[in-house]
Design a protein around this nucleic acid. Structure first.
Lengths: 118, 118
DNA sequence: AGGTTAATTAACCGGAAGGTTTCATGGCCG
DNA sequence: CGGCCATGAAACCTTCCGGTTAATTAACCT
């Protein structure tokens, strides 16, 4: 529990749908700021700010090619976030197990009469 | 991509270290608000607010037992968040593969002279 | 009834987030 | 050189966030 846990920045960055969409886009390869902004109904500086947030969270790095600054996805923080969530895997699997059991009970209750279609 | 993607609320809730700690605590079993507040140097209403954020994100549900309102962890949204992150698993595994390759290269370069200790 | 305990509500505050517009920089190209 | 093009920076506004204190509800226990 460091003073500034990197998970803070990672999850905060992921909490915005625009930024998540940008990451999805970047998983298909590098892109310039303008190209990233194109799908959104939003000014260019707004996208630039989103990219800065992603950059400070370590989710994106940028190259320098002439007047373009291509953005590249960095998956490290995503992996750490995923690892944190993995802590609860047993939890939701238990939940699914219970649901499965429940569904199986329903099924065996239906069996005697067969399926009924209204 | 709904107007209000539940991932927004989930990731936003997870971006606060106090809330993450609360979730960790709840993974060990139900707890009252006061019990949850105890480890933190923070007023009770502050914790109450955090719990409301977690509740609205569907990460926590609450029972009613006399004057206590025990909180229970709900792992569903965590699973969805994890699923979203899983989209990038190939990405970071590729990164690790490259690191592994790099380390192996370093190792084979060291081999001829053997390890040197300054 | 009266008091204690658990928890929420309300009002407030400082600061950060997310957006805008405007201006500045820096590299290509005609 | 002159100008366009891609991007970053600054100033500003509004809303949300995380915290506080003080007051309120609700349930238990004499």
């Amino acid at each position: 529990m460091a003073a500034t846990d990197p998970l803070n920045a990672t999850f905060a960055a992921l909490s915005d749908p625009t930024r998540r969409a940008i990451l999805v886009r970047l998983s298909a390869g590098e892109a310039t700021v303008k190209a990233l902004a194109e799908p959104f109904d939003m000014s260019l500086p707004a996208i630039s700010k989103h990219l800065r947030v992603l950059e400070r969270a370590g989710l994106v790095t940028r190259g320098r090619n002439a007047q373009w600054r291509p953005c590249r996805l960095e998956a490290g923080p995503l992996q750490e976030a995923s690892a944190w969530l993995g802590q609860y895997r047993a939890f939701w699997e238990a939940r699914l197990d219970r649901l499965e059991t429940y569904l199986r009970e329903l099924q065996s209750q239906d069996r005697p009469d067969g399926p009924s279609r209204p």
